[in-house]
């Protein structure tokens, strides 16, 4: 049982997301992370899904996804050389003074950007893989994380390989 990253190319039509997510819940598969957006081809969207399961379960997920009429292509990119990123926005306590300076320092180490500064808080934007964001969150907890928003993971294959419509 390990996390798999599925890249799913779908037709951008009303209800397609509920068809995809409905299939996961109906067949008892958990979604760890989900990210949806338009892609290089007009009319299509790409969904990146991270789910946990053994090989047989993941194979079944992929086959069932492929049966959906509006799904054009499903690829498990887990085994391939790939780039994966997540974005998080963290609103953290940063009273003027030493606390704020420390938060800024942590941000710098993680190459997080400060995107908003308030009287008592700052908002950091961080991009990276899941572990990096988890690590940053853990560190910031001591200052007080007020709100945390994460996008869900997106992934792309390295080199010239693609997840495009073959079907």
């Amino acid at each position: 049982m390990k996390p798999h990253t599925l890249s799913v190319l779908v037709e951008n039509k009303a209800g397609v997301l509920s068809r995809v997510t409905g299939l996961f819940s109906r067949r008892g598969f958990n979604i760890e992370s989900l990210a949806v957006g338009t892609c290089e081809e007009p009319g299509l969207s790409r969904i990146t899904i991270v789910c946990i399961g053994d090989d047989a379960q993941i194979e079944q997920v992929i086959k069932q996804l492929n049966k959906l009429i509006e799904v054009i292509k499903v690829s498990d990119i887990t085994e391939n050389d790939r780039v994966e990123r997540e974005l998080a926005l963290v609103k953290v306590n940063a009273e003027p003074g030493s606390g704020r300076a420390e938060v800024m320092q942590v941000a710098q180490i993680f190459r997080a950007n400060v995107v908003d500064v308030g009287a008592k808080t700052v908002i950091l934007q961080v991009i990276g893989d899941t572990d990096k964001i988890d690590a940053l969150e853990k560190l910031l907890r001591q200052y007080g994380v007020i709100e945390l928003v994460r996008t869900g993971k997106i992934g792309i294959l390295r080199g010239s390989k693609t997840v495009k419509s073959g079907k």
């Binding site: 009303a14 209800g15 509920s18 068809r19 409905g22 109906r26 009429i69």
Partner: peptide, 13 residues
């Protein structure tokens, strides 16, 4: 269409 999502091969509104 929502109700029959899990019991149709496909559906249309």
């Amino acid at each position: 269409t929502g109700i029959t999502l899990p019991v149709t091969k496909h559906n249309y509104l």
